[in-house]
Every structure is written in C-alpha cells, then in structure tokens.
C-alpha cells in the first residue's frame, strides 16, 4: 500500500496535469491568454459535487455533469470575450474568475463562505489515472487533427488564419469549450477527493498556478503540462517549511523562465527525446562554464 501522503501527492499531480493540459490547449496551442482557468475548475467541482449530493448519481455521471456544466460556461464566456485579444482577453477572463468565485461565495446551494461539505470520497488513483489518460489522449487527437491545425494557425497569426478560410471565432470558442470541459473534469475529481469545497480554493492564485505549470513545462507541449504540473505540485510540498515564500518562488520561476527559456522546459516539440537531449547539453555547457569559472 502506498503511503497516503504520497498517494495524495500523486492524485494532485494527476488533477493538476488535467488542469495544465486543458489550459495548454487554450494558451499553448491557440495562444489565448486565459487567466481564469480555476473558475472552470470550480464550476466543475461544485456542479459535480452538488449532483452527487442531491441526486446520488454514479461517479462517472457526476464527473461528466461537472465537465459539461463547465464547458457550457466556457462557450458562454467565450462568445463575448473571444473577440478580445491579448491583454484584454486576460482581463476579461480574470474578471470572469472573480465573478464565479464571488457567486459561489454568496449562493446558498454552494454553502457560501461555510464551504460545501460532506461530499463522498469517490476519487481514487485509478479514476485519476484514467481521467489523465483520457484527457491527454483526446487533447492530443484534437491537436493532431484539422481542428488542431486551425488552432495553431490562429496562434501563429490570426489575420492570416482568417484569410486561409479558418473561422477563427468558431475555433476559439470551441477551444474554450473543450478546455473548460476538461478543467471541469479536473474540478470534479478534486471535489470528490477533498470532500470539501470552498470558493477560496479557486481564487486568482489558483489560475496563476495553472498558468505557471503550462509555462514551466512548455507552451504547446502535452508532455510539458505533465512535467510542469508535477514540479509545481511536488516542489511546494518539499518547501512546506518555507510556505510563506511560495508565491515569491512562483513569481521568480515565471520571471526566470521568461528570461532564460521562454519556450518552457520542453519547448514546443511534441517529441520528448530531442528536448531531453537539449536540456542535457544545456546542463553540460553550464556545468563546464561553472567548472571553468572555479579554476
């Protein structure tokens, strides 16, 4: 039997991988700066938990309800905001995240500031592993398909994509819907693991955490989402003794990544082997430089 502490870590890595992978579709592949991903997670978490509590649906149905609910909001929020670009979209998604948090804080059905308690524990390692596999598989299929090519074209140059006959508004909304769907799935798993939900869990900092995972792992790389999620889930645990410095470290990570390796640890290749080779060479050269510096 795995030590429950490690078990919790593995499950959180899994959930965060789903979060990072789904944000990667929006941010890494389509190039839309969304900083309200935690809101989609919370929509999925609350709705799936409420469905379980009130109707007693089987777990898989609750999860799907949560994901669908979140996807619907992804589309609804997508329609008015996706005409915005860059910073403006970021601000709109930030506002959306706050609205969701404050609504959850004030509704009776979500338990308000008391939080939602008594959610049965249904998320197991098996569920999480399955969900991660399904998420990464489907997202990968999307990226390799016609839709994926359109999304990448939009990221590269929206005007040119439009003049290629790509309906960029449609694809952006689609990508928001799919991203929100999987974020909602992650939220549902989270709710049935933690058994307690509070709006504060899904605040702006949570969205930033997801953003950091994607940026750290590598924008536009599905392996990157996993690596970013693993590092930013495990490292804060190791740094528990300096928990107050966590935000500082996140900030430093973002700044350093942007300065030294804006493409993330893995960069945009989908293939992992050459990327690892590159990192190895990089470390080697740094090592040499250091060694030379010492003598």
């Amino acid at each position: 039997m795995i030590n429950p502490y490690y078990m919790q870590l593995i499950i959180l890595v899994g959930i965060n991988t789903i979060m990072a992978a789904s944000l990667n579709l929006i941010l890494g592949y389509t190039g839309q700066l969304s900083i309200g991903h935690a809101a989609f997670m919370s929509l999925g978490a609350y709705s799936s938990a409420l469905v379980t509590l009130h109707f007693g649906f089987p777990f898989i149905i609750s999860l799907l309800c949560g994901a669908l609910f979140s996807a619907i909001f992804g589309v609804i929020i997508g329609i008015p905001t996706l005409k915005l670009k860059g910073d403006y979209l970021a601000i709109a998604t930030l506002g959306f995240g706050e609205i969701v948090r404050i609504v959850c804080l004030n509704l009776d059905i979500t338990g308000g500031a008391m939080g939602l308690r008594g959610i049965p524990k249904k998320t197991t390692l098996l569920w999480v592993v399955l969900a991660v596999l399904v998420t990464v598989f489907i997202l990968n299929r999307i990226i390799k398909s016609r839709i994926g090519r359109a999304l990448i074209a939009i990221r590269e140059d929206e005007t040119a994509a439009d003049s290629m006959g790509i309906n960029s508004t449609y694809y952006k909304i689609l990508c928001f819907g799919v991203g929100a769907f999987f974020a909602g799935l992650g939220g549902g798993l989270f709710a049935h693991y933690m058994r307690f939900l509070h709006p504060k869990t899904f605040d702006f900092m949570k969205s930033i955490e997801h953003l950091c995972m994607v940026v750290l792992g590598g924008l536009g790389n599905m392996w990157g989402a996993f690596i970013g999620a693993s590092i930013l889930t495990v490292v804060p645990e190791l740094l528990r003794s300096v928990a107050d410095l966590r935000l500082l470290i996140y900030g430093a990570v973002l700044v350093l990544m942007m300065r030294l390796r804006p493409q993330g640890i893995l960069g945009p290749q989908t293939d992992i082997a050459p990327a690892i080779e590159k990192i190895r060479l990089k470390f080697k050269s740094i090592w040499h430089r250091l060694a030379r510096g010492k003598t």
Binding site: I152, A153, E156, D157, T159, S163
Partner: peptide
C-alpha cells in the same frame, strides 16, 4: 475563401513557427 477569393495580406503574414509545407497545407484548409 470557399467562394474562391484568396487574400495575401500585407506584410506577408506567414505562420512563422510552422514549416513551409505546413503553411502551404493550411492554405488548402
């Protein structure tokens, strides 16, 4: 575009991080 009008925008607007082949394939989207 489907009706048969194609626009080459000013400043070229190629997809910089995609290959030449991928750029051309997107043209036939």
């Amino acid at each position: 575009v489907e009706m048969g009008i194609s626009h080459v925008p000013e400043g070229r607007n190629v997809f910089p991080r995609l290959t030449v082949r991928e750029n051309l394939e997107l043209g036939a989207y």
